[in-house]
Amino acid sequence: MDTLLLILGFVCVVAGIFGSFLPVLPGPSISWVGLLLLYLTDAVPNNYWVLGITLLVTVLITVLDYMIPAKGTRKFGGSSYGVWGTNIGLVVGLFVPIPFGFVIGAFLGAFVGEMIYDSQDQKRALKAATGSFLGFLASTFMKFLVCMLFLGTFIYVGWSYRALLF
């Protein structure tokens, strides 16, 4: 059973890293579940401090993930159309076979969203799309860092108890 929990935990932590880039998957939350699965094994003793602090970080990052792109868009004079366009463009960009399609898609989606909101002011749409895009990049980078920290914690704890796990 420990081996199954270890494998599932590792899969969750790695899926969380991919989820930090994909808006469909809650990256830090999935990574935290991976840590929880590791601590549910019989070989690794429960450490409620680690689980509690990482859960708090996960909740904080999840809240900030929704706030940062919207704040970036608003700061640069945009609307919620730009935020929605960023997310839709990101998903579309994932399936377009070009390098960095998700980045290009996020920017173009924000621009198109702002043009739908106000088709007369292209300069404002470009500025708002830039704000939304920068907010998206900041949010994604923050989620990626947290997920990598969770991966490092998973590997460190797993390695520390390797004699009992394997």
Rank of each mutant, 00 (worst) to 15 (best):
S20R: 08
G19V: 13
N46A: 08
F107Q: 00
L55R: 03
I17E: 11
L145N: 14
L165E: 07
T73F: 02
V63I: 13
F107K: 00
S119K: 14
L51M: 12
M148Y: 12
L56M: 08
I155C: 09
I7E: 05
L151S: 07
L51N: 12
V44D: 09
K127C: 00
G101S: 03
L5I: 02
G93A: 06
G158I: 04
G158V: 10
A163S: 08
V83S: 00
G131C: 01
F100M: 12
V103I: 15
M142T: 14
T62F: 13
Y39W: 03
P97A: 03
L60K: 12
W49Q: 14
V96H: 01
T86K: 02
K127S: 06
S20T: 12
A125R: 00
M148P: 03
K75W: 15
L164V: 00
F150D: 11
I68S: 04
T130P: 02
L40Y: 11
L38Q: 06
T130G: 01
F136Q: 00
I116G: 05
L37D: 04
T73S: 10
S31M: 08
C147S: 13
V33E: 02
F10D: 07
F100G: 07
F154N: 04
F102K: 12
V91N: 12
D42G: 06
L38S: 11
N47L: 09
G34L: 06
I53H: 01
L36R: 14
S31A: 11
G109D: 10
L37C: 06
A70E: 10
F102R: 06
I68W: 09
F21M: 12
I104M: 05
V57Y: 02
F150N: 08
V44I: 02
V33K: 12
G93K: 02
F144T: 14
L90E: 05
P99K: 10
F150T: 14
A129L: 05
L8A: 10
T41G: 02
T153M: 15
L164A: 03
L134G: 00
D121A: 12
P69K: 01
G131H: 00
V83H: 01
S132N: 09
S160R: 05
K123V: 15
T86S: 04
V14P: 10
G101T: 15
P99C: 07
F144Q: 13
I104S: 11
K143L: 07
F21T: 11
V50T: 10
M148D: 04
G152V: 09
K143N: 07
A106K: 05
A106P: 11
T41S: 03
G19H: 10
V92F: 01
V59T: 13
V83R: 00
A43V: 02
K143I: 08
I30F: 13
G152P: 13
Y156D: 13
I30R: 03
N46S: 06
G27S: 13
P23Q: 08
S79R: 01
R162Y: 14
W49E: 03
S29H: 09
L40P: 05
Q122L: 11
N46F: 15
L22S: 06
G135D: 04
Y161E: 12
L38H: 08
L145A: 11
L5Y: 14
F76W: 12
W84V: 06
I88D: 03
G105Q: 01
D42L: 08
L36D: 03
S160G: 04
V157M: 10
I68L: 07
T153K: 13
V146N: 07
G135R: 12
L6S: 13
L55N: 12
L8Y: 13
T140F: 05
F95A: 05
